[in-house]
Amino acid sequence: MSIGRLPDEIAQLAPGTPLRDGLDRIVSGHTGALVVLGTNPELEAISTGGFAIDVPFNATRMRELAKMDGAIVLSTDLTRIVAAAVHLSPAADIPTTETGTRHRTAERVAKQVGVPVVTVSASMDTISLFAGAGRQIVPRPDQLLDRVGQALSAIQGNRTRLNASLERLTGLEVHDSVTLRDLAHVAQRFELTNRLADEATSYITAMGGDGRLAALQLRDLVDDLTPVSSLVQRDYVAEQEAMPFARLARLDDQELFDIVLVARSLGFAPELHLDSPMRPRGYRQLASIPRLPARVRGELVERFGDLNGLFAASTAELTTVEGVTADIARQVRDGLTHISEKALAG
């Protein structure tokens, strides 16, 4: 399912940024470099030699300084070159999976001082980002574009399956036959779509200004996920309880495909099994009725208890609810009838 999320720090290296311009110039010059993206007391403690320059950052200046041995240190906001030709001496007992001297140093520095470090490989013409405990080879713009395309395609496919799951849930709600299994399947689809959207966001961010159109496409695909998810959860979770779908973020990708584990992660009573019946309150169906205020929806659910009670209520009974006029009552009655007929026809 996953095609690999990029770290947040990758945005600092997006195409079109001054830093990326400087790194691309170093790649073109085949000289290699080690660049520390920020400074702190911990970094200063392991730094020796070199010289402080504290000059405004520009790509040409960094390219020339990369011709010297040692690290280039930038200010935390990346607007200034603080020092150059700096020798870094991180603790030798910090584990590293790298083999080259430059990359081993970069990984250890990032782990020890908590500041991102970028390396340029002279032999491979690649840019690598070390942030925290991981290394990420910085994708070229064409690679990013390909990843964005894959992610958006995956989101589109999963969104289609999510919509089908929601339509099926509506049919089951009309027939009063929803089970915990059905709710778990819908929750699973929401979480899968959210994870794919999170990955796509990381690629689009890494594209910088070139990702604007892709960002619009992504927003079009997922912009309504949060409100729909909230309505589903309000239908099946007590008002005072936290929304359970967020708990699925704790599962890894493989665990997310285990429907039993998904159901347990939602936090319902342990004695419930997958075929335990679930009864919706009706928030989601009421929200599909045009121009029905949220306050009125809440009053209706409070008065009639659940979706079955709403389906059974007559127009006259609906008007006994505070804020429900005769016109609103007919609108609600017609809307619920349409939902029922559509589900039965499907």
Score class of each variant (00 low, 15 high):
M1E: 00
G4W: 02
R5D: 01
R5N: 07
L6E: 06
P18M: 09
L19F: 04
R20I: 07
D21Y: 02
R25P: 04
S28R: 15
L37H: 05
G38S: 01
T39E: 14
N40C: 02
P41C: 07
A45C: 04
T48I: 12
G49Y: 15
G50F: 11
G50C: 12
P56F: 08
N58G: 00
R61Y: 01
R61G: 06
R61M: 07
M68T: 14
G70I: 03
A71Y: 03
V73N: 13
S75L: 04
T76E: 11
D77A: 09
A84K: 08
H87K: 15
S89C: 11
P90C: 05
A92N: 00
A92L: 09
E98Y: 04
E98H: 07
T101S: 12
T105H: 04
A106H: 01
E107L: 10
V109M: 06
Q112Y: 05
V113N: 04
V118P: 10
V120T: 08
V120Q: 10
A122Y: 02
A122S: 14
S128L: 10
G132F: 08
R135Y: 04
I137K: 09
I137P: 08
V138C: 01
P141F: 07
Q143I: 00
L144W: 03
L145C: 03
D146E: 15
G149Y: 11
Q156K: 13
G157A: 15
G157W: 12
R159S: 12
R161D: 13
N163F: 09
S165P: 06
E167T: 15
L169A: 05
L172W: 05
E173G: 04
V174M: 02
T179Q: 05
L180N: 08
D182V: 03
L183I: 13
A184E: 09
E191M: 07
T193K: 02
N194V: 06
T201V: 13
S202Q: 02
T205D: 12
G209V: 11
A215P: 09
R219P: 10
V222Y: 10
D223E: 13
L231E: 09
V232K: 06
V232S: 03
Q233V: 05
D235E: 00
D235W: 01
Q240I: 11
Q240C: 04
Q240N: 01
M243R: 11
P244F: 01
R247I: 05
R247S: 12
D258L: 04
I259F: 00
L261K: 15
A263T: 08
A263P: 03
A263Q: 03
R264T: 02
G267E: 02
E271V: 11
L272W: 12
L272Y: 11
L272F: 14
L274F: 05
D275Y: 05
P277T: 01
R279Y: 07
P280F: 06
R284D: 10
Q285N: 10
L286S: 05
S288D: 10
I289E: 00
P290E: 12
R291S: 13
L292G: 06
R295Y: 02
V301D: 06
E302F: 04
E302K: 14
G305Q: 00
D306L: 10
L307V: 02
N308V: 08
N308C: 07
A312C: 09
T315R: 15
T319G: 01
T320K: 15
T320Q: 15
E322A: 14
E322F: 15
G323Y: 05
T325P: 00
A326S: 15
A329S: 12
R330E: 11
R330N: 13
L336G: 02
T337A: 13
H338R: 15
A343R: 00
L344M: 12
